[in-house]
């Protein structure tokens, strides 16, 4: 874990929050260094949005402490949020006002905003041409872009974004990623909650993974992925058992990763540079791989740490999908 105390833009200590009898956060300890993009990951119901709401004063914690930009944040410290920009859940606007009017209305609250800042942000998020259109006519992606502009209104030192890629097209996602990377490069801190693991892998410097209201792993992306090195190999279903037996010599924790219908992908937990060894071992056993990949996989780490979709006490569960054997819901 990142050591707390020194140069943190955001930290929480033993943060707890319950809704009635349901525990949303069960002692969350986050340490977000200054000037990074921090990917905040977790399955549905893990407590991500509750955390975001606590960090922006929308909710009050049952216990625990929050520090924003090096200073305590509790009830009555609302002005600490003048240096924080946030997009929580879905973007919220007056539907009968246009994009520019909505930003102007928002700029009237909190920290003062220079008038030209609104046009700069509309340009940044590509809404200048549609700034005079009512928000009720905006697509989800346009609302999301306007929400990101709203979060950037006060030129915040700390940016809290909840699923910022929601509704964005591929070009928009790339532009958002570049913008967030740029903000981090000039010393701002970006805290991004997301389900898009591949996107987080491309964007984040530091990652925190939460499950059932507790932090289960936190660290730089490189460090985390180094613990999750894998070589993936595709073999025919008939050869699965023999391949597993052969590969056990390289790594005992070889597992079935996925069945793509015709073939089976096996994940071998070993250094990525041993891909050739894996291939040779299979060949020496008379098994020929039809595909070979090596590298580090955030998704595998995420599933391993969060239970891979298995029900966790206190969580809201997740989509279970259709299973080919066993007669899933729609099978």
């Amino acid at each position: 874990m990142t050591s707390p105390g020194s140069d943190l833009a955001l930290s929480t200590r033993d943060l707890r929050k319950s809704y009635g009898r349901r525990v949303a956060l069960a002692g969350l300890d986050l340490s977000v260094p200054t000037g990074v993009v921090y990917g905040f990951l977790g399955p549905n119901g893990a407590g991500k949005t509750t955390t975001m709401r606590l960090l922006t004063g929308l909710l009050h914690p049952d216990s625990g402490a929050i520090e924003l930009l090096g200073r305590p944040f509790a009830r009555g410290d609302r002005q600490r949020l003048f240096e924080v920009g946030a997009l929580i859940e879905s973007p919220s606007f007056y539907p009968y006002l246009n994009g520019r009017q909505n930003l102007r209305a928002l700029a009237a609250t909190g920290a003062p905003v220079p008038p030209k800042r609104i046009d700069e942000l509309l340009e940044l998020v590509g809404l200048r041409e549609r700034a005079k259109d009512k928000v009720s006519g905006y697509s989800l992606g346009m609302k999301q872009r306007l929400g990101i502009a709203a979060a950037l209104l006060s030129d915040p030192k700390l940016l809290l974004l909840d699923e910022p890629a929601n509704g964005l097209d591929p070009a928009g996602i790339v532009a958002m990623r570049e913008t967030l990377r740029h903000l981090a490069s000039i010393g701002k801190t970006v805290f991004v909650s997301s389900h898009l693991l591949a996107e987080v892998q491309l964007m984040a410097d530091v990652v925190g993974i939460i499950a059932a209201g507790k932090l289960v792993r936190e660290g730089t992306l490189d460090d985390l992925l180094n613990t999750q090195q894998v070589v993936r190999v595709r073999v025919a279903p008939a050869s699965t058992a023999a391949a597993q037996a052969a590969l056990a010599a390289i790594a005992p924790s070889t597992v079935n990763a996925a069945d793509d219908g015709d073939d089976v992908w096996l994940s071998v937990h070993t250094e990525p540079n041993r891909a050739a060894d894996v291939n040779r071992t299979l060949a020496e056993s008379g098994i020929y791989a039809s595909g070979l990949e090596s590298g580090s996989d955030l998704e595998a780490l995420f599933l391993e740490l969060t239970g891979g979709g298995a029900p966790i006490a206190g969580s809201e569960g997740t989509f279970q999908g259709i299973t080919s054997a066993g007669g899933g819901a729609a099978a």
């Binding site: 922006t56 949020l81 946030a86 929580i88 919220s92 609250t109 909190g110």
Partner: peptide, 8 residues
């Protein structure tokens, strides 16, 4: 919610 999250 927006206003509160901006520290208003």
């Amino acid at each position: 919610k927006n206003a509160v999250a901006r520290g208003e």
